[in-house]
Simulated scan of single mutants.
Amino acid sequence: MALLFYYFYNWIVMKKTYLTFVLILISISLFAQNGNGVNSSVFKSGEWFQFRIHYGPFNASYATMQLNETNYKGKSVYHVIGKGTTTGLARLFFKVDDNYESYFDKVDGKPYRFIRQIDEGGYTKDLEILFNHEVNSAIAYDRKRKKDTTLTIPVGVQDMMSAFYYFRNNVEFNKLKYGDDFVIDMILDDDEIFKFKMRYLGKEVLRTKFGKVETLKFRPYVQSGRVFKAKESLTVWISNDENRAPVRIKASLRVGSIVADLEGFKGLKNSFKIIMN
């Protein structure tokens, strides 16, 4: 919410095993919902988040999300940039330098352009996706393989960056009940549209570097495999205020767990609420 970073960044946790932190961070930040509607946006240009991803006591990487206004094809839009890099000892074992960008509508949140440029331990990708919502299609340009792919997109589709901001404004959060599920159509690559599912698990107070914060807890459902222990191995906590900011993300792996904590923020439209007692 991906994002979420979204929303984590890759680093080695055991031989030949890595985790795509950007996808987890920004994607599971999708449900930083508010429900006020786009006419009362919970964010503004200049909003910035930084996350520290750590494995036990060891820092693994940092991720940032920066939102600004820009011009795209003569239209004023939002432009978000998500960046991540491994740091310290983690970088010696597994170098990650990732860049994700999205240009999306300031009124209804639909994406116009998505960029995914990654270098993850030698695995690289340079992808650009242009959306044409009038004809329900998108063209994905794979710069590395010099390949273009046309995809049919459903109404309401989001890329992994724009989705974080879309849901912060467009889901009725105050009506959520424990166990409620949400599904969104998302595009990440040039091969398919996939459905991303989240479940609401109630409220929880967390101790953070900023103090105690009341949060809303969600469980994203991911495919189990050689990295995650099970499809329910991810948990995300969102601030229970008008910002709906990702506060903590935890991924249980086959060996230990990785945690992403909100490390810094600025440019928030609303006050970040701290429990004083």
Results as ranks from 00 to 15, higher is better:
F5P: 04
F5I: 04
Y7L: 04
Y9A: 02
Y9V: 05
N10Y: 14
N10A: 09
I12L: 04
K15H: 14
K16P: 04
T17G: 02
Y18D: 08
T20R: 09
F21W: 12
V22D: 13
V22Q: 06
I26R: 00
I26P: 01
S27G: 12
S29T: 05
S29A: 10
L30A: 08
Q33E: 08
Q33H: 11
N34G: 06
V38A: 08
S41A: 11
V42C: 14
V42K: 06
V42Q: 11
V42A: 10
V42S: 13
F43M: 05
F43L: 04
K44S: 00
K44M: 01
G46P: 07
E47A: 07
W48Q: 07
W48G: 02
P57D: 15
N59E: 15
Y62L: 04
Y62G: 02
A63Y: 02
N68I: 15
E69M: 02
E69P: 06
E69Y: 12
T70D: 05
N71P: 05
N71G: 05
K73T: 08
S76K: 14
V77F: 09
V77W: 11
V77M: 12
Y78V: 04
H79Y: 15
I81D: 11
I81W: 09
G82R: 04
G82Y: 14
K83I: 01
G84I: 00
T85F: 15
T85I: 11
T86Y: 10
L89F: 15
A90T: 06
A90I: 05
R91C: 02
F93T: 01
F94M: 08
K95T: 08
K95V: 02
D97Q: 08
E101F: 03
F104Y: 07
D105N: 14
D105H: 12
K106M: 12
K106G: 04
V107L: 14
V107T: 13
V107N: 15
D108K: 12
D108C: 06
F114D: 00
I115S: 01
D119Y: 15
Y123H: 14
T124A: 03
K125H: 12
E128H: 11
E128L: 06
E128W: 12
L130G: 02
N132H: 08
H133P: 10
E134N: 14
V135N: 07
N136T: 10
S137P: 02
S137K: 07
I139Y: 11
I139A: 05
D142H: 12
R143G: 00
K144F: 15
K144L: 13
